[in-house]
Computed example of a mutant assay.
Amino acid sequence: MIVYLIRHTTPNIERGICYGQSDIDVSDIFEEEANFLLGKIKSVTITDVISSPLQRCTKLATKISTAYTTNASLMELDFGNWELKKWNAIPDEETNPWMNDFVNVPVPNGENYLDLFARAIKCYKNIQNNNTIVVTHAGVIRSILTYITNTNLNDSFDFKIPYGTIVKIDTESNEYTIL
């Protein structure tokens, strides 16, 4: 079975702002980015499209298929009290424990990476159809890639997932390619 993981396009937010589950819209270059991505998957016979419910994902999912479904398990990390704050405005005494152990330490009133990993992998394991496209976020894609490659979660940021990245996974062999 083949699963395509697609990271949403560029969000409409200033650089340096912490956002995860905030419902950020897409940028002004959305149409251009979406059309480029559609060109990369135009030869794929799509059987299912599943999306994070956040609009930066659903807008792309709608371009792929109007018959998509949403799944909250595909949302990005919940940054709790830090949502929509500038990273450099969050006190070091709050960020340092999380930065030193983001896998286990939750963001105040948010999640840790294990929480994100658990829900992302549960959703991934429930995909039933060949050529399913999943429109989601970098954290979810990194979680799935760490799972299929048996990579330590602490090393998940070694997977570079820019906006609009498409990852093709062969679930039989757990091999992946970046399109």
Rank of each mutant, 00 (worst) to 15 (best):
L179V: 11
Y176Q: 08
I148N: 09
N150C: 10
I166C: 05
V134K: 00
I144D: 00
V135L: 02
I166A: 08
F157R: 14
I178W: 11
L145D: 03
N152Y: 11
T151G: 02
T171E: 11
I169A: 08
D158R: 13
N152Q: 15
T165Q: 07
L145F: 08
Y147K: 06
V135R: 00
V140R: 01
N174F: 14
L153W: 01
N150G: 11
F157K: 13
E172D: 15
I169E: 09
G139T: 00
D158L: 13
N152K: 15
T146M: 07
K168H: 01
T165F: 06
L179H: 11
H137Q: 10
I169Y: 07
N154C: 06
N174M: 13
D170H: 10
G164Q: 08
D158W: 00
I148Y: 11
I144A: 00
I148H: 08
P162S: 09
T177W: 11
N152G: 06
D155F: 03
D170V: 11
I141L: 08
I161M: 11
F159T: 07
I161G: 03
S156W: 00
E172W: 03
L145I: 02
S156Q: 13
T177M: 14
T177R: 13
L153D: 08
F157E: 12
T151L: 06
F157M: 14
I161K: 07
V140D: 04
D155K: 13
T165G: 09
Y163E: 14
F159D: 10
T177L: 12
I144F: 05
S156Y: 00
V134A: 02
L179M: 07
G164S: 06
G164F: 05
V167K: 09
Y147T: 00
N150W: 05
L145C: 09
T149L: 09
T177I: 15
F157S: 12
S156E: 08
L153N: 14
K168P: 03
I169V: 14
N150V: 03
F159K: 01
N174P: 08
R142G: 04
I166W: 13
G139H: 02
V134H: 01
V140G: 00
T171D: 10
T171A: 10
I148G: 11
F159R: 04
T146K: 02
T177C: 10
K160A: 08
I141C: 13
D155Q: 15
T136M: 07
I178R: 12
N154L: 13
K168I: 08
H137N: 03
I148E: 04
I161H: 09
V140A: 07
I178T: 14
V167F: 09
I148C: 10
P162E: 03
L179S: 01
L153F: 10
V135K: 04
A138C: 10
I148D: 06
T165H: 10
E175I: 14
N150E: 13
F157Y: 15
D155T: 12
T146R: 01
Y147G: 03
S156T: 12
V135Y: 02
Y176R: 05
I144S: 02
N150K: 14
I141K: 05
G164E: 06
T165L: 04
T151W: 01
F157V: 11
I148A: 12
T177V: 14
I166E: 05
P162C: 07
N152S: 15
N150A: 09
